[in-house]
């Protein structure tokens, strides 16, 4: 296995993340927020708002967006970009669901 090949880590069953909620995965490099929408899609973003570093995992999730709990910036879960008048981007990471379990691609997740 080369260091470039996909390195999917099983991080747990989907039902461990509440719908319209998020959980945190701690990695040596960073904390990653894994979001689950009302429609059971999952997204992974660095758990830091591009504005003042607020923990996005604690925000209110609506549609495919999350509102940062500190100053209410609205971040797009897919791209990590701030929406509306705000500018900035939270880093996003590959994540997928297979047979009810959530997998995070760890090679990218631990890349500086």
């Amino acid at each position: 296995m080369t260091h470039l090949s996909p390195n999917w880590f099983d991080i747990g069953p989907l039902e461990q993340i509440p719908q319209r909620g998020a959980r945190v995965v701690k990695t040596p490099r960073r904390n990653i927020a894994v979001f689950r929408t009302a429609g059971d899609e999952v997204f992974a973003l660095e758990n830091r708002c591009p504005h003042k570093g607020g923990p996005l995992s604690e925000g209110i999730i609506h549609g495919r967006k999350v509102a940062c709990p500190l100053h209410n910036w609205i971040i797009d879960l897919d791209s990590g970009s701030a929406t509306g008048a705000d500018h900035g981007c939270a880093r996003s990471f590959p994540v997928k669901i297979e047979k009810g379990r959530v997998y995070l691609e760890m090679t990218v997740a631990v890349t500086p």
Partner: peptide
């Protein structure tokens, strides 16, 4: 946390 990825696992 949902999971903790420690260096040893990596």
């Amino acid at each position: 946390p949902l999971a903790i990825v420690a260096p040893i696992a990596q």
